[in-house]
Amino acid sequence: MQFDTMAILATHQPDPITGAVVQPIHLATTFARNAANELPGPYGYARVNNPTREALEKALITLEGGAASLAFGSGQAATMALFQALRPGDHVLVGTDAYYGTPALLEEVFHPWGLTYTRVDMSNFDAVQASLHENTRVVWCETPSNPMLSITDLLTISRLAHEAGALVVCDNTWATPVLQRPIDLNCDIVMHSTTKYLSGHSDVLGGALIFKRDDEFTKRVRQIQGLSGAVPSPFDCWLVSRGLKTLGVRVRAQMATAQAVADFLDGHPAIQRVHYPGLANHPDRALIHQQMNGPGAMLSVQVHGGADDAIRFIGQLKLITRATSLGGVESLIEHRASVEGPATKTPQNLVRLSVGLEHAEDLIADLAQALDRLH
């Protein structure tokens, strides 16, 4: 079955009582017991489970090919619950080019608690193998990475990690299951910021974990979520489920436009370098074809000059909005180093562009006039 069909079937659940085609939003925080003090169904209290949240989790299981799923109030909440399921003294391996919030969480919250971590170039398999220790429990991958769009060979990393007894977690936010299914590539857990492409309209905050197995580790994460209350609201879950219906159509349209934009920017005299998996000169071109169904709709651009030049460039844009986040229907651009702060490893002349659903010619015209003003 093709992805678009699966997305509709996974989220199309007519109400069995009313026949409503659109699934209802269950806002109840608690559920009544009968005279014998028994719950009539599986729901008791919304922090533990909720019908609307459960519907979203079942859809994510279908789309990512997992066995269990947990929806969270944000991507960072999902990441935090997973790390909380580890023990003091455990070790995490994370890519050098990971979303800055992931190592920040490890350094600021979990390192003082006793969790150790190492950052490594995931494309250097010798370095990865040398960094795997007896106490390594999780290898955290992100591909394409944020913001440099480097590609991780998930099959090879999974093999190395599993040989060392570690779980592989893949942040699949940028690729989405439309373009990449990490569980099919031997990863154990998939993480999503559902704020981004899965919801797709810049109007909901959310996260998710999808597990290859419903095992003891999965149960531990589920327990932590229930105890800590890192859950999304029913309305937020409903919004993400609604976004899933059009995910395939949106991503493919955005990707086609992103390719046109990247082709225009590549070789432009004001541009030093374009980072986009769809370019013929991308160093991981063969790997991209092997594990992805397309290059996605995110690209990063380094202008000639420094931070001032990058900021001046995006300041001239008329159509593309200067804002953090990605995956929405509107195109967004940001000076990434400014967002990440003083500890950033991102080049100062780099801007990150999330391509939306505007027409490619209009986006290119906006970028062209802004670049012309740099001279």
Rank of each mutant, 00 (worst) to 15 (best):
D266E: 12
L299W: 02
I320E: 07
S338H: 12
T346I: 13
A253M: 13
A262K: 06
H282S: 04
R336S: 11
L244G: 06
L299C: 03
G296E: 06
Q291R: 06
L239M: 14
A260E: 15
D284K: 11
H282W: 00
L299V: 03
L317Q: 13
L239W: 02
K318E: 15
E330W: 02
R285C: 03
H289Q: 14
K245P: 00
L350W: 00
R312L: 11
Y276N: 00
M298F: 14
V251P: 03
L287N: 11
N349W: 02
V261L: 13
E330Q: 14
I333D: 01
R312H: 12
V261A: 08
D263S: 10
M255K: 04
M255Q: 15
G328V: 09
H289M: 06
I288D: 01
E334H: 08
G341A: 05
L326Q: 08
V251I: 15
V274E: 00
V301Q: 00
V329I: 14
V301C: 03
V351K: 06
Y276G: 02
H335K: 08
L350F: 02
V339C: 07
E330M: 08
D284H: 13
F313L: 15
G328A: 15
A280S: 14
L247D: 10
T321F: 04
L350Y: 02
W238P: 00
R285N: 11
G296V: 09
L299H: 05
K245D: 08
Q272A: 13
P295T: 07
